[in-house]
Nucleic acid binder design. Structure first.
Length: 552
DNA sequence: GGCTAGACTTGGTTCCAGAAAC
DNA sequence: GTTTCTGGAACCAAGTCTAGCC
């Protein structure tokens, strides 16, 4: 396992939090029925928001603005070409963004350096720009050291000092962290505006290192109900706009300057609005269960269609269904080169007539969402293999594999098969089905809580593999693994010892049975053992609505 | 039908508090 | 008492998908 992990240098997720799509199902199987509320006392019954109108009343305090920049003390110098230079506050603040990241791999990348330096120079005064012309002559080390020390100071704060900070944070949460939506006090997901900094794109992102500018109240649009108390902008400022649009769920929005796309302040996943959406998502996936056989029959028929676009569509849906691939919308050139199903290129697949004793194998190798590598060798049906050969014929490696279809066309077809069906529903459906099947397979009546949790983790791992959920190995991975191996060895020794003891105890029981030796416990897994508080809050709707007999 | 903007979800990374280990 | 580890929460980048425009 260790070798394998090293080879791909990433982890397969087994955490329940990540397999959100599957959590609903699993919350049921292990769910302690005694804790269930009746349907009548749950807020999910209260009346659904319609598809267009999301709320009737919405009141909030507006976003929380990050604190203004505090200039560096006079003894901390930025040096250019060996000489100390006092920077203007704006220039200095941006320098601190870079200085704080000196330990990070990002700052060694040329794209990051160039983007940073270009954006930094734009914010400089004329004089600064005239002087500071080369990044390699910039010395941020004093600033870096200063922030490392500050961080150490924070860590070494006394209990009392930490308590003061904690109280301040909870005061902020109380003031800005909640809104009033249709009379309910709901938690907001991200009430703090994103602070300025340097953009960290994932993978080989062409915009990494660019300056994420400070958001001003004048950039922010507020959304709330007309008769509510309109949030006050910070002193001396005004909002960009105040609107009262109840067809959207966001509380505030602004345009981020890196891609020029809107960003939002929205509700926490535990809120009624988000919960309803989530519930709907799983219901659509459950409807797909009823329809999936006919959809599969249809896409199989499409594989032999006379029309190329229909054949391509049939194979694409087959991949989305079988491999849980994402739809793969077209992307602009100003982001990392990642793909999904519809945007696969010829270079992302290799066809093997025969491989490892299997026939008609497709080898996938591409970067998906977040530049996470998808590598898989999959035996496919003969007709799919034939079609793929046809699709790549006379094409260059960088040509689109599915050149006749788009995600929009594909989703249109899916929607005709079943209202509400899109490519991503297959991911939810297949993840949920896999989890349910695995749980059915891996759990039996007499299992202990620990055994059931192990089965749950194994089932979750199967989902993670299907969905290609991975994360980078932590820096301390090697050391942790070593410690773990030592622990395993110790446990093995303990097990051997326990086995011996059991043997002796059995023999003793046979010779002279006692009350103690007759007991054997029955376990149910309390939901707290599977889901943390956040997850239980988020899936409150599922907990409220299901019983222990639920099957996806 | 193609393009774009906008709204929303998904999910990987980072930070930090509290637990566990030393 | 100190250090290390771990899990949860927060953060935010990167997806999906739809509506509206031309």
């Amino acid at each position: 396992m260790k070798t394998c992990l090293r080879f791909i240098s990433r982890f397969i997720y087994i955490s329940a939090e990540r397999n959100k799509v599957a959590s609903f199902v699993s919350s049921v199987r292990y769910y302690n029925a005694a804790a269930a509320k009746t349907l009548s006392d749950c807020r999910w019954e209260e009346g659904k928001s319609s598809d267009t109108q999301k709320w009737s009343s919405l009141e909030h305090k507006g976003p929380y603005f990050p604190p203004e920049y505090e200039p560096l003390p006079d003894n901390i110098c930025f040096n250019y070409d060996g000489q100390p230079v006092k920077l203007s506050p704006v220039t200095e603040e941006i320098a601190t963004f870079y200085a704080k990241m000196l330990d990070h791999e990002y700052t060694s990348k040329e794209v990051f350096q160039n983007n940073f330096f270009c954006d930094w120079r734009e914010e400089m005064t004329k004089e600064e720009r005239k002087l500071i012309k080369t990044l390699s002559k910039c010395d941020f080390s004093q600033i870096h050291k200063y922030f490392v020390e500050k961080s150490e100071e924070r860590k070494n704060m006394t209990k009392e000092e930490k308590q003061v900070l904690k109280e301040e944070a909870s005061r902020l949460m109380e003031e800005y962290g909640y809104c009033l939506l249709d009379g309910h006090r709901e938690k907001i997901g991200n009430f703090k505006l994103e602070p300025p900094g340097l953009f960290r794109g994932r993978g080989e992102h062409p915009k990494m290192g660019k300056l994420k500018k400070r958001i001003q109240p004048e950039d922010v649009t507020i959304n709330c109900s007309q008769d509510s108390k309109i949030p006050a902008p910070p002193a001396g400022h005004r909002w960009k706009r105040v609107q009262h649009d109840n067809t959207v769920t966001w509380l505030a929005s602004w345009l981020e300057n890196i891609h020029g796309r809107p960003k939002y302040i929205m509700l926490n996943p535990s809120s009624k609005l988000k919960g309803e959406k989530d519930w709907q998502k799983y219901e659509t996936a459950r409807r797909l269960k009823m329809k999936v056989d006919s959809i599969r029959k249809q896409y199989r028929r499409d594989w032999t269609s006379r029309e190329m676009k229909i054949r391509q569509r049939g194979v694409a849906i087959y991949f989305i269904d079988k491999l849980a691939l994402r739809a793969g919308n077209e992307k602009d050139d100003e982001s990392a080169d990642t793909v999904g199903c519809c945007s696969l290129r010829v270079e992302h697949i290799t066809l093997h007539r025969r491989l490892d004793a299997q026939e008609h194998v497709v080898e996938f190798d591409f970067l998906g969402k977040d530049s996470i590598r998808y590598y898989n060798k999959v035996p496919v049906e003969k007709q799919v293999f034939k079609n793929l050969k046809l699709f790549i014929k006379h094409k260059d490696p960088e040509d689109d594999l599915f050149d006749r279809i788009t995600t929009v066309k594909l989703n249109k077809t899916l929607n005709e098969s079943m209202p509400g069906l899109t490519a991503k529903v297959f991911r939810t459906f297949n993840a949920s089905t896999t989890l349910q099947d695995q749980l059915n397979k891996l759990t039996t009546e007499g299992m202990t809580v620990e055994e059931k949790i192990l089965s749950y983790n194994r089932a979750n791992r199967a989902v993670a593999i299907l969905c290609n959920h991975q994360r980078a190995a932590p820096k301390t991975f090697e050391r942790s693994m070593q410690l773990l191996q030592e622990k395993i060895q110790k446990k093995k020794e303990q097990i051997e010892e326990a086995k011996k003891e059991l043997k002796e105890a059995k023999k003793a029981h046979k010779d002279a049975p006692s009350d103690k030796s007759k007991k054997c416990k029955k376990h149910q897994v309390p939901i707290e053992k599977i889901y943390n508080k956040t997850q239980r809050d988020k899936f409150a709707w599922a907990i409220d609505m299901t019983d222990e007999n639920f099957q996806f």
